[in-house]
């Protein structure tokens, strides 16, 4: 492996870690504008994380070693996930270590650690949140895998870099299955990132929270890591969506000159995507918890339909 590739891998992961809170801040700022508020500014997540790192950790009496290890593990999983997703360039030496299925596995690993940590303190809201989070995941994860399988079938590979290179070259080819996949993906992304209509990231109202309930007992540096990991997760999902459905502009292996264009293209896409997310969240209302399975079942069905469409219309075997 060439050292410059390893460097690009490291730089890309660092870029993601640094940029992730900014993306979250942008979404929050857009929401504030849409709701006629001035908003805290796009750098607010950095200030929150910095403040939390300086604060003292208050641990519940019941908390075990698992509870203390989980923030680090979740953060590690998310950083690794950013290492697999081609954001700026497809030259990722780490990518062969994990394909899309392993990526879904990594996200699941982080989620299960979160749920176990939530149950560890033995509080009413913690276990409630863990149950709901696992329920949403149990329905969203199959849909996510099915979404990933469509581009995998088109590219005949489950490696993300290969998929993105294939799709980026097929500018003219029309894949109706990808339209289904895109709709299903957006629905899964909303659910997995605890956004409206499945969950409300701004709420601490006891009975409606899902993700917030799982992190209720965290404080100080632990909470900072979890918030950061959460921002990373949103960025990972956003960049996967961009890479799969609008990959144009990404720098391909060896084309270092294309990198500035790639950064600009990614920034533009993230700006538009973040604004669109804010609009979606503003115009829709949160679903009751037992309507969430219907929402996710729709996503799952969309993905299955998309796969059928692919086999009926696009398969050439």
């Amino acid at each position: 492996m060439l050292p410059q590739y390893a460097l690009s891998q490291l730089l890309e992961a660092l870029f993601a870690v640094v940029v992730a809170p900014l993306a979250l801040g942008w979404v929050n700022q857009c929401r504030a504008w849409l709701q006629n508020r001035r908003g805290p500014g796009v750098t607010q997540p950095y200030r929150v994380i910095a403040k939390l790192f300086r604060k003292e950790v208050v641990l519940a009496h019941q908390a075990s070693f698992l509870f203390r290890a989980v923030p680090y593990l979740v953060f590690g999983c998310m950083v690794l996930a950013t290492g697999i997703v081609p954001m700026l360039a497809t030259a990722l030496p780490f990518a062969p270590a994990a394909d899309v299925i392993a990526l879904v596995g990594l996200l699941a690993l982080a989620r299960i650690f979160m749920a176990l940590a939530a149950m560890d303190t033995g509080t009413a809201f913690g276990s409630l949140g863990a149950r709901r989070e696992m329920l949403v995941a149990a329905l969203a994860e199959p849909a996510l895998l099915m979404v990933f399988f469509m581009p995998s079938l088109i590219a005949r590979s489950t490696s993300l870099t290969t998929i993105v290179e294939t799709l980026a070259h097929q500018r003219v080819a029309v894949h109706p299955s990808l339209a289904f996949a895109a709709v299903a993906f957006v629905m899964v992304m909303l659910a997995e990132n605890a956004r409206i209509p499945v969950d409300n990231p701004g709420t601490h109202l006891e009975l409606t929270m899902i993700h917030e309930a799982t992190i209720l007992e965290y404080s100080g540096r632990h909470l900072a890591l979890i918030e950061w990991a959460h921002a990373l997760k949103l960025l990972v999902y956003a960049t996967i969506g961009i890479a799969l459905f609008v990959p144009w502009g990404i720098a391909e292996a060896g084309h270092w000159g294309a990198l500035p264009t790639a950064v600009l293209a990614l920034a533009a896409k993230l700006l538009v995507g973040g604004a669109a997310l804010a609009v979606t969240e503003t115009v829709s209302a949160k679903l009751r918890i037992f309507r969430a399975p219907e929402f996710l079942a729709t996503a799952f069905l969309m993905a299955v339909l998309g796969m059928l469409t692919h086999l009926l219309l696009e398969a050439t075997a």
Binding site: F53, R54, E56, V57, V58, L59, A60, H61, Q62, A63, T121, G122, T123, A124, F125, G126, H204, E206, L216, E217, G220, R221
Partner: peptide, 15 residues
């Protein structure tokens, strides 16, 4: 290295 590692035990908050 960067921050203090102060930790305090307390009853669970649970809202």
């Amino acid at each position: 290295v960067r921050y203090h590692m102060r930790t305090r035990r307390a009853p669970a908050w649970d809202c």
